[in-house]
C-alpha cells in the first residue's frame, strides 16, 4: 500500500511541474509491437533457405496431426518433410509424426496459446533442416492467438473440419483472412454430421476470397491428391524464385 501511494506522489509532481520537475514529453515511435518477433521470423526464413515452410493453424481436434501423418507418408517418395509441432503439453503429436516417417520436433509451450518465432528458432536447432524439402510448423490448436505471429513461413494454411460449423471463417476472420490455403477436413463424415458444404465454402470465399480451398479426409485419403500437388507446385515455385534471385 505504501509503495502505491509513493508512486502516486511521483506522478503528481511530474504532472504538476510546479517544483520544476522533469517535463513530460512525447516521443513518436511508430513501430509494430511485433518488431522483435518479425526480426526473428526473418532470421528463420533465411535459415530455411529454399525449403517450403508452412504454418498450419486450426482449432484443437480438427485433424492437423492426422493431415500431417498422411501428407508425410504420401510425399515420402518425392519430398522429405520435417515437422515442428506446437502443443501446450505432451509430445504425443511429434511421436505420431515420427512414426509416420518424418523427422519431428515438439515444442511444449506450457501456458502459451500460440507459437512465436523464437520458439521455432530454438526447435529448428534440433531438426536437420539441410536434409529437408518441406518444413511444416503445426501451430498450437487455436484459431485466435497464433494469427499475429509470423514464424518465418512461406504459406499460412488454416484448417477447419466438418464438425465445427460452417460459419467458422466468419467467427475467426483474422486467421482465415491471412490464409493462402484453407483445408476442410473430415469430409468422409460430412453427411452424417449434416455439414452444409455450400454454406461453408461461401463463408470461406467471403472472408478469404484469394485462398485456395481443399476438401479432404486425412483419414480416408479423399481429396489429398490436390493438396499434395499444390504443395509440390509451391515448393518448385520457391526453388525457382530463389535460384533466379541468386543468378540475378
Amino acid at each position: 500500500m505504501a509503495t502505491h501511494d509513493s508512486t502516486r506522489d511521483i506522478n503528481l509532481h511530474s504532472h504538476g511541474g510546479v517544483d520544476g520537475s522533469t517535463d513530460v514529453r512525447t516521443v513518436q515511435v511508430q513501430k509494430s509491437l511485433m518488431t522483435h518477433n518479425d526480426g526473428v521470423a526473418a532470421e528463420n526464413r533465411m535459415r530455411f533457405g529454399s525449403r517450403l515452410v508452412l504454418n498450419i493453424v486450426s482449432s484443437p481436434g480438427s485433424g492437423k496431426t492426422a493431415l500431417m501423418e498422411r501428407t508425410v507418408r504420401e510425399l515420402a517418395n518425392d519430398l522429405q518433410v520435417g515437422v515442428v509441432v506446437g502443443d501446450l503439453e505432451t509430445d504425443n503429436d511429434a511421436v505420431r509424426i515420427h512414426d509416420a516417417g518424418a523427422p519431428s520436433v515438439q515444442i511444449v509451450t506450457g501456458a502459451v496459446c500460440h507459437l512465436e518465432a523464437e520458439m521455432v528458432a530454438r526447435a529448428v536447432d534440433n531438426l536437420d533442416v539441410e536434409g529437408l524439402d518441406v518444413v511444416v510448423i503445426e501451430n498450437v490448436g487455436n484459431l485466435v492467438c497464433p494469427a499475429a505471429w509470423d514464424l518465418g513461413e512461406d504459406l499460412r494454411v488454416t484448417m477447419l473440419s466438418v464438425t465445427e460449423g460452417e460459419d467458422k471463417p466468419l467467427k475467426y476472420p483474422r486467421i482465415f483472412k491471412d490464409a493462402h490455403a484453407v483445408i476442410v477436413n473430415k469430409i468422409d463424415i460430412a453427411e452424417v454430421v449434416g455439414f452444409d458444404r455450400a454454406k461453408a465454402l461461401d463463408s470461406i470465399a467471403k472472408v478469404a476470397p484469394a485462398a485456395t480451398v481443399f476438401e479432404v479426409s486425412a483419414k480416408t485419403g479423399e481429396g489429398m491428391a490436390d493438396w499434395l500437388d499444390w504443395l509440390r507446385a509451391r515448393r518448385v515455385e520457391k526453388v525457382e524464385r530463389l535460384s533466379k534471385v541468386t543468378v540475378g
Binding site: 511530474s14 520537475s21 522533469t22 517535463d23 513530460v24 514529453r25 512525447t26 516521443v27 513518436q28 515511435v29 511508430q30 513501430k31 509494430s32 509491437l33 511485433m34 499475429a148 483474422r174 483472412k177 470465399a205 467471403k206 472472408v207 478469404a208 476470397p209 484469394a210 485462398a211
Partner: peptide
C-alpha cells in the same frame, strides 16, 4: 465483390510514448 486486400485493420502499433 469480396475483397482479400486489406489496407488497414491488422495493425498492432506502438504509436508514441509520453516520457519524463
Amino acid at each position: 465483390t469480396p475483397s482479400a486486400q486489406l489496407l488497414q485493420g491488422k495493425e498492432m502499433q506502438l504509436a508514441r510514448l509520453e516520457v519524463a
